[in-house]
């Protein structure tokens, strides 16, 4: 059951989520502040050396804190969350300096089969959709499914993008998609119901490296358009942060 808890500055709700997890939700009324809070909290928990804490998964306004119920308990982890919040209130919620990523994209045709549908739905022409998609500097909000996808707030479109009625069974890696008010790149082949408007030739996921994807939440990302005949020239290149 929900047990709302108020700390000195940030209102948090802490929910039991089974015997091995808690969901912590920031409720400040400001989306940006909530995001900073849950990512700072996750960072604090990850470095606190708490026995039995398996990890923290922060997204937009919530963080899932997973633990081993043999070594610790929901009650104890809740206490750590409150301790973390008190300390964050004191030192401030700071995230590390963002790095920047530049992502080449081939838009439309086979690379972005849903581009025209998105344009039609938005009441824009295709070029305008591409212009809006490449105009924005995106903040990576969190890592999502599958395999550490960079979840970002979407481009400046007039209306939210509806998901596909029939999700695709297989979306290629590198697919650049939009749905609702969100944007994403697919690091790996997976089923998907988002509208694919383009594809990057860069390899996003490298299983030989740790931690598999090069970005962390808070990093910034921009898309730029390349013609289809340059797709091959990026073969084998990895997505890397700008120097």
């Amino acid at each position: 059951m929900a047990t709302p808890t108020t700390t000195s500055r940030t209102r948090l709700d802490i929910y039991e989520s089974g015997d091995a997890a808690l969901r912590v939700v920031a409720r400040s009324g400001d989306a940006e502040a909530n995001w900073t809070t849950v990512h700072s909290l996750a960072g604090w928990l990850a470095t606190a050396g708490i026995d039995g804490l398996r990890g923290a998964v922060p997204t937009y306004d919530s963080v899932l804190v997973e633990f081993d119920p043999y070594l610790t308990s929901a009650r104890q982890v809740r206490a750590f969350v409150l301790l973390a919040m008190r300390q964050l209130d004191f030192v401030g919620t700071t995230l590390r300096e963002p790095r920047r990523f530049e992502v080449p994209v081939v838009y439309g045709a086979d690379y972005g089969p849903d581009l025209e549908r998105v344009a039609e739905h938005q009441g824009l022409d295709v070029e305008d959709v591409i212009a809006r998609h490449t105009a924005k500097t995106y903040v990576i909000r969190c890592l999502g499914a599958p395999a550490g996808s960079p979840m970002m707030d979407g481009p400046d479109f007039p209306v939210p993008v509806p998901r596909l009625k029939d999700p695709r069974l297989s979306v290629p890696s590198g697919a650049v998609s939009v749905a609702g008010r969100q944007a994403v790149i697919a690091p790996a082949v997976a089923p998907g119901g988002w509208c694919v408007i383009g594809q990057t030739p860069l390899t996003v996921l490298d299983a030989a490296r740790e931690p598999l994807v090069p970005y962390v939440p808070g990093d910034e990302l921009r898309f730029y358009r390349i013609p289809a005949d340059r797709f091959g020239s990026f073969a084998g290149q990895f997505l890397e942060a700008q120097p």
Partner: peptide, 30 residues
Amino acid sequence: EVLSRGVPVGAIEVPSREELLVLHRGRGVT
């Protein structure tokens, strides 16, 4: 609409009108 968030292993969801979904250890994290 619900914002994406972390879901624990064992989460029971009702994603469609046909079936209940109980997530197990291979579940997508969010």
